[in-house]
Design a protein around this nucleic acid. Structure first.
Lengths: 333, 333
DNA sequence: CTGAAAGCGCTTACAG
DNA sequence: CTGAAAGCGCTTACAG
């Protein structure tokens, strides 16, 4: 059986409260230095490991921050998970990752998320109204929570940190115009329930100012093979644009391959720009331009807002917007 | 405050044991159907959410499986995390990911891993003796555990599932020989404390059988920019080999770029084969050959062994080896 | 500086 | 089929 504070207390002939004081680092009442040392030694010697379930139950605090994220299989998302973990750990707390598909039915909400956390970082949650309906029956609505991600046309309520992909997209499209593109296509997943993403709006808007026709290559799912096939078919049917902007970098990589399948030269036939900042893009030949998300800043800022929300529940909510950085490479020159 | 089973019991004028029986799905004593329905309705209506800290404390079981993995930032590892999650969830349990760098000092072991779990899946842990020293003071040594990963010269004790990278490497090198390579280099991280990885051994062994000189391009860390620079410098100093095998696919991607930096044609000047099965390799131009790890099978099998270990603690340990699959592509033709 | 008591929200084990 | 009691391993709040 595991060693408990009572075992240590008995061994040392002190009360378990004294042991708890030394080992918990919660109660900062002073303990006589000699006693403290004896307890610490005994704990080490006996292999004591605090039971955090018990600690959480008694104290009502877990020292855990939940990270709600839809998956960890793409580069940005795994970077976000990593950066959040680093930020949270610096404050002496931990991250617990819940992969949320955001698609569960509200009625099963009461079965999910049964492990208490002290706060939540929610990455790219659905729009406010959908989110509220999901959370309503789960009692999570009262847990401090910060939304972070790529931002939507309608901003989330409460605290949020968004990357300004609208401005980033504008930069990308304007760059394609500057290098002389006359026909700029946009490769994008099917929105489904999330219309109005801000890069789409920006794409449409910039084209309108120069009187250029939008050309959306809409992909049915988020899989690279589908993207590759869809782009090839689109170009076979419609001829090729001379500039392509991709919704995100998995799409960019698949589009790159589709263009090479068709033996189109990049950038001479088609200039290519992605969005997200996937590190591998630099290693392609030619290396591929992209709009880099400021992931560390995004996560650090979100964690700051969450700490503030936890410590000062009544402070006014903040909405922060961060810029993306354009990484110009050979694919768009 | 959160709703507890006592709140529901009071509301319904039953004992909290009855509520617990209905809601816990642990105690399978029969409850009168009418009572069961009343409890379920009240739980839903009142927004009851079980406190799993309390549940774990009382029952001694968490229904959580710990996944010990060094990071989630590379493709295989994030695939492994995903596949383990799927397998474990199918059995009605959850995964909790602990990113372990395996480098913490043994003396701080008692501070780590304080959340109890019912079992552990340990991905690519250090060799048996190092592992034991790390775990000795943590009381984790008694928790059911299965080792999985790319395998080592000296196998782990207890249950394990390893991918046969030795055989995979042999296949890759033999393929390079078959397409006519006369000088085959191996790009590899510096082993540090983990000598004797099996692909290295296999590389040396195959070259010996054909009387070819080994040529290791050793990289100081695991970062792509370092790999790129190291390969470029190596080739500038020594001329280029006509075949390269890379230790894993981040290295493959960086090596690809290094060869293009030097304006070497792939595969005409240098044939290239990676190891791991990174999905993006297919999208490069030319697309890159690799040895694919059987990730879903690896994780599913590991989880089966762990379940068996949990349910039958005294059953004999099993060591299973899985093959890799060679994906031959344009980079090595 | 130290300790005895009560309780966190559940389950186990037993009694009816 | 249902319930009263005890306890999981800690912390809180109070008393000394």
């Amino acid at each position: 059986m595991a060693v408990t504070i009572h075992d240590i207390a008995r061994e040392l002939n002190v009360s378990s409260m004294t042991v708890s004081r030394v080992l918990s680092s919660v109660d900062n009442t002073l303990v006589k230095p000699a006693t403290r040392i004896r307890v610490e030694e005994a704990a080490l010697r006996m292999g004591y490991r605090p039971n955090r379930n018990a600690r959480a139950l008694a104290s009502g605090r877990t020292n855990i921050i939940g990270l709600w994220i839809s998956h960890l299989n793409t580069s940005v998302y795994s970077q976000i998970a990593q950066a959040c973990r680093v930020a949270v750990q610096e404050a002496g707390m931990e991250i617990s990752i819940s992969e949320m598909d955001w698609h569960f039915h509200a009625s099963e909400g009461h079965r999910r998320f049964q492990w208490p956390v002290d706060g939540i970082l929610a990455v790219d949650p659905p729009p406010q109204d959908v989110l509220e309906k999901l959370l309503e029956p789960t009692a999570w609505k009262d847990v401090p929570r910060v939304h972070l991600g790529s931002g939507q046309s309608v901003p989330w309520q409460g605290d949020s940190v968004c990357v300004d992909l609208g401005a980033g997209t504008r930069t990308a499209i304007e760059h394609l115009l500057r290098v002389g593109c006359k026909r700029i296509a946009y490769v994008t997943p099917w929105w489904g329930e999330r219309p109005g993403m801000c890069h789409y709006d920006a794409y449409i808007e910039v084209l309108k100012t120069v009187g250029m026709q939008p050309e959306c290559i809409v992909v049915d799912d988020w899989e690279c093979p589908t993207v590759r096939r869809t782009v090839v078919e689109h170009i076979k049917a419609n001829g090729h644009p001379d500039g392509i902007y991709c919704h995100h970098d998995e799409f960019t990589i698949a589009t790159f391959r589709a263009l090479r399948d068709l033996d189109l030269h990049i950038p001479n036939d088609v200039a290519l720009i992605g969005c997200e900042g996937n590190a591998f893009l630099e290693y392609f030949d030619p290396s591929i331009s992209t709009m880099a998300m400021p992931v560390p800043d995004l996560c650090r800022t979100s964690w700051e807002l969450l700490q503030k929300r936890i410590n000062e529940p009544l402070s006014p909510p903040q909405n922060i917007t961060l810029p993306v950085e354009f990484l110009a490479r050979a694919s768009s020159r």
